[in-house]
Design a protein around this nucleic acid. Structure first.
Lengths: 261, 261
DNA sequence: CGTGCCTGTTCGGCCAACCCGGACGCAAGC
DNA sequence: GCTTGCGTCCGGGTTGGCCGAACAGGCACG
């Protein structure tokens, strides 16, 4: 009977929903006071306050001069999750080596909740600013790594993701049509890597390749980003894609071997 | 009437406490099934399940083959919190430069909930394994950066921290006596840097220096760690402490300047 | 120094919602 | 095919969360 429209089917804990909304708010506002949170959520301060007290005692939020912020417990849990991640463990050093070799910004992504999450990056911060920071969430259809991962998914899962998140247009090059996307994914699946031609950010191109488990599940993807002027070079259209795909294959093999042993 | 001993004073949300305990559990166990979580907490599966559903819908936990894990939302929030942090912003590049110059493992710490949290590190992963990973929580009295921070705190705050967390012994060199700690903090405060002589991990020494705000609040600390054989060199007892303290001073100045403008 | 305002904190009471026990569906395995 | 184990889904009772409102404390202003 609350404002949650979709309580049908499974039972939810209303208090936990509120607590998550509060966390989202103080993250979004990069620190907020009690009244700011209350107004943002349309709740009375008397309601929000005990939530904040509980979150504080559980060390999920800090309080400094009346401003609540997410604590570094998020960093601790997130970093822990990252270090446990099979893909990260095998990809991290190879990502750095690749970044040095081809002098580009190399990033590794995984898919979660239908979005791409950048979990690490390496390489020339001098040349270009990175499209995503570690932890950032991005629509899969606008980045090379995301398209590479989509190309390895079953069609029904792709449609599900598109339905859930849509295909927002970031630049004039963004592919916004679902059937066009499916067509492109066919080619990507065949050649083993995906291009991004300024579809996310103007002036930025990339090439990405996915890593899959032996049962076909997508594990993640690695991508190399370069500024536009380098995109048209034969080095980028010919050599780099194979470098990226080769690294992805090596990582994939390593993971398969580990799963055997 | 629940198992929470300290409900006196302020009101807490029991459901949020449960949800935090569940998150702690799946973090601690590095992923857990419903029954594992239930048994770990002494709750029935019927109780835990709706919590997990709610946390899943809020994208704080993922579910893969019946195993629940913390999501990368923790990484996103934690990284965001880190990038916003004034100390990190000013210290990160200087930390890396210092690590290269003195060829040691340099880390930066902040204090949160009376513990030290490593928020970044740089330098030779070849020489020594780092004492803490990014995000790790450590007792302040066993690390150089922690003692440097304690030395800048008011005495009552120090006692409060000791009372809350105790002074556990990590090695035979760990200072476990409160009055001895206070004595050492005096010296540290005077000379501007703190040593760690295998007080945390055998074979590992460090020197750290704190950064404070203009009102005296502790902002964080930077430390350089080296293996034991390098600790007795005059370079480490003379040059390195001043290098570390100098970097800390530079960071401190930068932050004060930013706060003016 | 008093007054007003604003923010954070606490409290009473009602009713919703959370927790438990138990039942159901479903897959795997001697 | 029976059993076992796990995850999922209810019914009921009572706990506890939510709101409205009052209280405390700090700051600016008159």
């Amino acid at each position: 009977m609350t404002d949650h429209a979709d309580t049908s089917g499974s039972r939810r804990i209303a208090a936990v929903d509120k607590c998550c909304e509060i966390l989202d708010t103080i993250h979004e506002l990069q620190g907020a006071t009690l009244t700011e949170i209350s107004e943002h959520l349309g709740l009375t301060p008397g309601t929000v306050h005990p939530h904040l007290v509980t979150l504080f005692e559980n060390q999920l939020v800090t309080k400094k001069d009346g401003v609540y912020s997410p604590s570094f417990k998020f960093l601790r849990v997130g970093e822990s999750r990252r270090r446990e991640n099979v893909f990260f463990r095998h990809a991290n050093s190879k990502m750095e080596e690749l970044a040095r070799r081809i002098d580009a910004r190399v990033q590794i992504y995984v898919e979660e909740f239908g979005m791409g999450v950048c979990i690490a990056q390496a390489g020339s911060q001098s040349s270009i600013q990175p499209p995503d920071e570690v932890g950032d969430q991005t629509h899969l259809h606008v980045i090379a790594a995301g398209k590479a991962m989509l190309a390895e998914m079953p069609d029904e899962r792709i449609s599900e993701i598109v339905e859930q998140h849509g295909m927002p247009e970031h630049t004039s090059n963004t592919v916004v049509d679902e059937s066009a996307l499916f067509g492109e994914l066919e080619d990507i699946s065949e050649q083993g890597y995906a291009f991004n031609d300024e579809e996310y950010i103007s002036g930025l191109g990339a090439v990405g390749s996915a890593v899959t488990a032996e049962n076909g599940d997508v594990i993640g993807a690695i991508s190399a980003a370069v500024p536009t002027n380098r995109m048209a070079t034969s080095e980028f259209t010919n050599t780099v894609p194979h470098d990226v795909a080769s690294v992805a294959n090596t990582i994939e093999l390593d993971i398969h071997v580990e799963n055997k042993g």
